[in-house]
């Protein structure tokens, strides 16, 4: 067994995982606090990528274009909650999950087609340079690029900030309060609707960050948001409905590493299956009682 190859795959998995962790953190909040089955998460990823890539093409410096992409994603995310989901949820009451799911699905597919029509008619993809890429040689024959290092630092910091914010800040307290009991939160003066919008803005900004880095690593394409969106769903499911931020991040990191390292034993085209395989096994074990919730977790659930 080639140890350098294994080390390199683990390193690559870490870089993939930390990005998935940020994506999963946002989805976990949307799914578990706002209770929205938000398929259009793929749209905010794609929008950010295209905004950044198009601005980059127009001569705007990479980091500035990236920030603009993230802002665009955050604004779109907030608007989706404000203009679409919230009115739909009000009208549908307890039966809101399905209409919101269908709306989100339509928005994701329609949005992708619209982006393709407006921005990707003459070319299937648009390249984007965030930072100049050079190769950094590491000990033991490992290597990474300046882009990988940037991704590791930026996403690492964002993930850490997310965990700390959810655990130790007033915002985190409010989010936890709304998740556990929205009615009680209202009694103490918190407006769950405002919290939902805030969650959508923050989570969409995170998805936008993922989008601009994906555009820089690969390129901006209309369908680029789907795979990461599904990964985010899986992370949120695996981490559990009441998961603290740290657990979501750990699940994201683990998933990234397992997915990349699995290429050692299965063909590269099947590594995506690993994510869904893990979810399937988890649900199977949980259903059969092999995996049990702790009394505290069960009580929270």
């Amino acid at each position: 067994m080639d140890l350098t190859l294994i080390g390199q795959l683990v390193l690559n998995g870490l870089i993939t995982g930390v990005q998935l962790a940020v994506l999963g953190l946002g989805m976990s909040l949307i799914l578990n606090v706002a209770q929205r089955f938000h398929f259009a998460y793929s749209l905010t990823i794609t929008l950010a990528a295209f905004v950044a890539a198009l601005l980059g093409q127009a001569g705007v410096p990479g980091p500035v274009a990236a920030i603009a992409g993230v802002v665009a994603a955050a604004v779109l995310g907030g608007l989706i909650e404000l203009v679409l989901y919230r009115p739909l949820a009000r009208r549908s009451g307890e039966a809101a999950l399905l209409p919101i799911f269908v709306t989100a699905l339509g928005l994701a597919i329609g949005g992708q087609s619209l982006i393709q029509f407006v921005w990707a008619r003459e070319a299937t993809s648009i390249a984007f340079e965030l930072v100049p890429v050079t190769i950094i040689a590491l000990p033991f024959g490992l290597r990474m690029t300046t882009f990988d290092l940037t991704a590791l630092i930026v996403f690492g910091l964002v993930a850490a900030a997310g965990v700390v914010a959810l655990r130790y800040t007033r915002f985190g307290q409010i989010v936890r309060g709304v998740r556990v009991n929205p009615s009680m939160a209202k009694v103490v003066g918190i407006r769950p609707e405002s919290v939902f919008v805030a969650i959508f803005v923050v989570a969409s900004a995170g998805s936008g960050l993922y989008g601009v880095f994906a555009a820089a690593r690969y390129s901006a394409t209309p369908s680029m948001g789907y795979d990461p969106m599904f990964s985010a769903f899986v992370i949120a499911f695996l981490a559990g409905a009441t998961a603290p931020g740290l657990r979501v991040v750990i699940v994201g990191l683990t998933l990234g590493i397992v997915q990349v390292v699995s290429a050692l034993v299965i063909p590269s085209n099947l590594t995506n299956i690993v994510i869904f395989g893990l979810l399937f096994v988890y649900l199977l074990l949980k259903g059969s009682g092999v995996i049990r919730l702790t009394p505290v977790m069960a009580a929270r659930s």
């Binding site: 039966a95 209409p99 339509g106 597919i109």
Partner: peptide, 11 residues
């Protein structure tokens, strides 16, 4: 539900 579905499909 139908309205939501139709809206999604229409988009």
């Amino acid at each position: 539900t139908l309205t939501g579905f139709v809206a999604g499909v229409a988009i």
